[in-house]
């Protein structure tokens, strides 16, 4: 009789990488629906197009690297990257923009570093920053969110806008972060009256998108796919920063904590970007620090920097700091007096 020989342990836990990736995608679905609700079909087309490009790019590089396709494509990491990027850029962006972004994310952001698990930077954020710097106009042309139930753009309109290059100028407008940033004359209350779509709390657009991301994040927490440390670190830091520097609702306002927590990519960043295990810190303590760093940098870039939102930049900056954070948060091994930091002494 043939008995199987294997190394111990012979039991294993339930979490599997493929499962983790699938759950992340599931958690993104509510936000996708809300985006579709407010921005039309463009959001869905974005996601689907990005997925196709991502899988194509991954397959292309895997073929070049002579790796088995099915095994690596199945792990779902390329899809997650595609979804995150698709949902971070304006819905209805032209096809070539997403094509460039996703290919860059997969090829340069991930595979050139050696594939999944090897990339020092979050591929989606890397591509986002590349697009933002290279194509600032396209990247800030967000459709104006429409009132509930009003389809801003039909499916055919979206497809035409994306693939045929039809102008969508008439539809676009600045995001709230842009508005607050550029505004130098109006108080916050006046701003919101002038542009009702931007008012967070009355229920249009951005806030709902952020709340949907929050819901997805809570789902991941509940499923024990992510730990609470990084999101809490980031949101707490962002909240504290905006509270500390909140200078009222006057015309020079930086915006209230609630405004900051619920606009831009705050929630998406907190639950889907800083929780990326590959490019983040490893230990729980490290994750708190990592998240807090992203929160602080995000606020600084939003308020005093040159770009309306700073999650992507902040994440990349903290990605660079992750090894240092790991170094300083190294735990003390049982039986040792203090953690052994640094490199082994070479002879």
């Amino acid at each position: 009789m043939a008995l199987i020989r294997q190394t111990s342990p012979h039991a294993s836990g339930k979490n599997h990488t493929n499962h983790i990736m699938r759950m992340v995608i599931v958690a993104l679905v509510p936000a996708l629906f809300v985006q579709m609700w407010f921005f039309g079909w463009g959001a869905l087309v974005n996601v689907l197009w990005c997925s196709v490009v991502a899988l194509g790019a991954e397959a292309f590089v895997l073929t070049l690297r002579k790796r088995p396709l099915a095994f690596y494509l199945k792990d779902g990491s390329a899809l997650v990257t595609a979804w995150l990027l698709a949902m971070a850029i304006p819905p209805g962006s032209p096809w070539w923009l997403t094509f460039v972004g996703v290919s860059f994310a997969i090829i340069f952001g991930k595979q050139l570093y050696g594939g999944m698990g090897q990339n020092p930077f979050n591929p989606a954020m890397l591509a986002y920053v590349l697009l933002l710097i290279s194509f600032p106009v396209e990247m800030t042309s967000w459709l104006a969110p429409q009132g509930a139930g009003v389809d801003p753009m039909g499916l055919t309109d979206s497809l035409q806008a994306i693939f045929a290059g039809h102008s969508i100028d008439g539809w676009t407008m600045a995001t709230p972060l842009d508005v607050v940033r550029e505004n130098k004359s109006l108080t916050m209350a006046e701003l919101w009256t002038e542009k009702p779509q931007l008012d967070g709390l009355t229920g249009i657009g951005w806030v709902w998108v952020n709340l949907a991301f929050l819901a997805g994040g809570l789902f991941l927490l509940k499923q024990k796919i992510i730990s609470w440390h990084a999101p809490v670190g980031m949101l707490a830091a962002l909240g504290v920063m905006s509270l500390l520097f909140w200078n009222g609702t006057g015309s020079g306002s930086h915006g209230s904590p609630i405004f900051h927590l619920l606009s831009g990519a705050a929630m998406m960043g907190a639950f889907f970007i800083v929780t990326d295990p590959v490019s983040g810190a490893t230990s729980n303590k490290g994750r708190l620090i990592f998240g807090a760093g992203v929160g602080i940098l995000t606020y600084i870039i939003r308020v005093w920097g040159g770009y309306p939102d700073g999650v992507a930049f902040a994440t990349l900056l903290m990605n660079m700091a992750a090894p240092a954070i790991d170094y300083w948060t190294q735990p003390r091994t049982y039986g040792h007096r203090k953690p052994k930091r640094g490199m082994a002494k070479s002879e």
Partner: peptide, 14 residues
């Protein structure tokens, strides 16, 4: 090379 079947790793032993 890729060995996708875990038992390949150890070699099946009779």
């Amino acid at each position: 090379g890729m060995q996708l079947i875990a038992t390949d790793k150890q070699g099946e032993v009779a």
